[in-house]
Design a binder for these strands. Structure first.
Lengths: 222, 222
DNA sequence: ACCTGAACACCGTTCAAGT
DNA sequence: ACCTGAACACCGTTCAAGT
């Protein structure tokens, strides 16, 4: 992952959608969303920019394929659990970790890739059923959970964009804290109070805490 | 709002950041995110494209200013309620309705505008406190609520992009249903079951149902 | 069938020149 | 101080031409 370098001199095997998507994921992971251009991709694959269009309809198609690939891998890896509560936590964590590793997926998810969203919705919905929620409430419960997961995914993607520019965890934390405290303590008392907890707080744990609040609500309501 | 037309012949008053932001919001509302270019904006304002840069740093700055404007109006309009539970619902609905009216705000919110996010977080957090949540749990509760709201905002923005191309509600519903049922019923039983409810379901009510699940969870957990 | 790379239309941004 | 609009660098996409 580290030193394959920018340009590939080999280029022995033929182009394929899979190779193109893999190269796109590499660029997105390493240099961020803005760095993915057809010219950069063509250089990376040692081919002409027009050649990519033989395998991929357009940039949207490419981004959707890349998102699907990361997402379906994450879903396949998410350990199957026997209890629905644990299943939901495992699925949610699978999405969280995938977006943690590939932040651009978070920004891409709500745009095009219906397949990925539908799969998430299906798996969450199935576990909501297994939880014993009334049929009339299942749609709302699954929808709420999926939307929560997507919201966190967004925020993670945004944080990663920030982290891409700020190198090092301390510089990153400082940048975030500076933003949280940019306004008057008088006008933003809660934000200031919470800003002191930023240093020791863990995004992943906080995400799980949100899932648990949700599950508690689902159980108490249905 | 209807017939001011595309080009302004008058151009009597001077340019200002406020006028530029208002024009940008008009274009975004009417023609979508892709339609906002400095050239289109300059034409709309009957000026040169370079002139805009005297009042606005760049496109990101412009989008942030437009988002802030819509968002702060929405927050100001959100009726103040005496009971924290009702307050949270009012704030959440304010955000929902603002994004319903200006879908591009949903896509923009997680990108840059820290001020808008912080204001939302502050107001939600204040009401979480008023709800009597333990101090140690306040951060997680507020964060979960904000993330849920942002997730719904995303989905709304995505739906609106679809609606911009599909004219008419029936064509829109058909397009959505087609996407929900694009896969095998065998592999996606829950999605198929829920797809039958799409026609009579109301996004706004479903959003509120999610808030209520959350609040039930918060109350039962704290 | 698959690839090349110049060309096209369009974008955000800059800047010398105007008032 | 504020505005103009041509120019620049860059982008996604197309397509005649090659193999």
């Amino acid at each position: 992952m580290a030193t394959t370098g920018h340009r590939n001199a080999r280029r022995t095997d033929a182009l394929s959608k899979q190779r193109i998507v893999e190269a796109a994921i590499e660029i997105l992971d390493r240099d961020g969303e803005d760095a993915l251009t057809f010219r950069a991709l063509a250089a990376h694959l040692a081919t002409g920019s027009g050649a990519i269009y033989w395998h991929v309809a357009n940039k949207n198609d490419l981004l959707t394929a890349a998102t699907d690939r990361v997402f379906f891998h994450a879903m396949a890896d998410a350990a199957h659990q026997t209890r629905p509560r644990e299943s939901i936590r495992a699925i949610a964590l699978g999405v969280f970790d995938a977006i943690d590793a590939h932040p651009w997926v978070g920004a891409q998810l709500p745009r095009e890739p219906w397949s990925a969203l539908l799969q998430l919705f299906e798996r969450i919905g199935g576990q909501v059923q297994a939880l014993g929620v009334f049929e009339a409430a299942q749609f709302n419960c699954a929808s709420a959970l999926v939307n929560y997961i997507l919201g966190v995914a967004q925020q993670n993607a945004a944080s990663a964009r920030l982290l891409l520019h700020e190198t090092g965890r301390t510089a990153f934390l400082e940048a975030v804290t500076a933003r949280w405290t940019q306004h008057d303590r008088a006008a933003y008392p809660f934000v200031h109070q919470v800003a002191t907890q930023l240093r020791e707080h863990d995004d992943r744990e906080q995400f799980l805490a949100g899932i648990d609040i949700f599950l508690a609500g689902v159980e108490s309501a249905c």
